[in-house]
């Protein structure tokens, strides 16, 4: 077990190093610093001003020195300041994580519960009319662009029905529910179709096993079979989905945040993309990849909690 943990961590660290290398190659070797400078000081800046900007931000140093600097700073979590507006990137991340989590966590929880309940229901009625109708609705739902949910939701709920503000955010806890209601609704409903289909196949696979027949033969009712036996034995795929989704919650949602004016990390990312701010973008990508790798390792270990049969060598 310990040997496995050490090996798993070492491999994760290697992947992190690989991600950092890829980011460096993309942002600081392939991309031309002149483009960055032009975006920062203006399209029509003179070559002298551009060179000054590049020198000031250290992009004229030898690549090897930059590479060493990049690795050292990222691994020690010293993110420095944004090239664009000199704001410390760490502060921006701290400030953005709150608003992102405030709407992604409830949205994810609602979406997950809804998907699991619906798919248990559908799996129970498999190959019946109910099953086929809900599956068809799920495919229809999956085929709609997320943009339609956002734009349509804003238009219908915000403008025509006037239930919630169209966009905006206020850190005051009393006002938060009003502002996040619509993002939560859209974020949670947008993914339900795909999730229902996924969990349905998982549940149906479990329902075909012998222990289900045994439980039935011993007189267990439908509710007990579905909830106590099928659901609990399907915990591994559910856990995998949940734990690998957690890093995305920190990052919010690029689209929803910029449409609804939520000052979260998704909005930070969109701003960085539109301004070619590689100093911020590399930190966002790095942190997200790091979280993903950490949570993936965590998932592997939660398997032992969910299923005592799982053992690591």
């Amino acid at each position: 077990m310990l040997a496995y943990a050490v090996r798993r961590l070492a491999y994760g660290f290697l992947v992190v190093l690989g991600v950092l290398g890829l980011l460096f190659a993309l942002f600081f070797v392939y991309a031309d610093p002149h483009d960055m400078a032009r975006r920062a000081v203006g399209e029509k800046a003179s070559p002298g001003v551009l060179d000054d900007w590049i020198k000031q931000h250290g992009y004229d140093r030898p690549k090897l020195e930059q590479l060493r600097d990049h690795y050292w700073k990222m691994l020690t979590f010293d993110f420095g300041r944004s090239d664009l507006d000199d704001v410390p990137i760490a502060r921006r991340l701290r400030e953005g994580a709150g608003p992102s989590l405030v709407f992604t966590v409830p949205a994810f929880a609602i979406g997950l519960l809804l998907a699991i309940q619906l798919s248990l229901f559908v799996a129970y009625f498999r190959d019946s009319y109910i099953d086929r109708t809900i599956l068809l609705i799920a495919v229809l739902e999956m085929s709609v662009s997320i943009l339609l949910y956002i734009i349509g939701g804003q238009f219908l709920i915000g403008k025509i029905l006037n239930w919630f503000p169209i966009s905006g955010f206020d850190p005051d806890p009393a006002l938060i529910p009003r502002f996040i209601a619509m993002p939560v609704l859209i974020y949670s409903l947008a993914g339900v179709g795909g999730d229902v289909r996924f969990y349905r196949t998982v549940f149906i696979e479990e329902m075909n096993r012998d222990y289900v027949r045994t439980a039935r033969a011993k007189g267990a009712g439908d509710g007990r079979v579905m909830l106590r036996h099928v659901l609990r034995n399907s915990m591994i795929p559910i856990l995998t989905n949940v734990v690998t989704a957690i890093p995305f919650l920190f990052m919010g949602s690029l689209l929803i945040e910029s449409f609804f004016g939520i000052p979260g990390l998704g909005a930070v990312t969109v701003d960085a993309v539109q301004a070619n701010d590689f100093s911020t973008l590399r930190v966002v990508v790095y942190i997200d990849a790091l979280l993903f790798i950490v949570f993936q390792i965590v998932t592997d270990f939660t398997y032992t909690l969910a299923d005592p049969r799982v053992r690591f060598e």
Partner: peptide, 24 residues
């Protein structure tokens, strides 16, 4: 397998954005 785990550890949308922005 290393290349696969490396690329899949970056969220798809972010990887896409990073590639497009950096490559032009």
């Amino acid at each position: 397998f290393f290349a696969i785990s490396l690329l899949s550890s970056i969220p798809t949308l972010l990887l896409l954005i990073a590639l497009i922005v950096a490559l032009g």
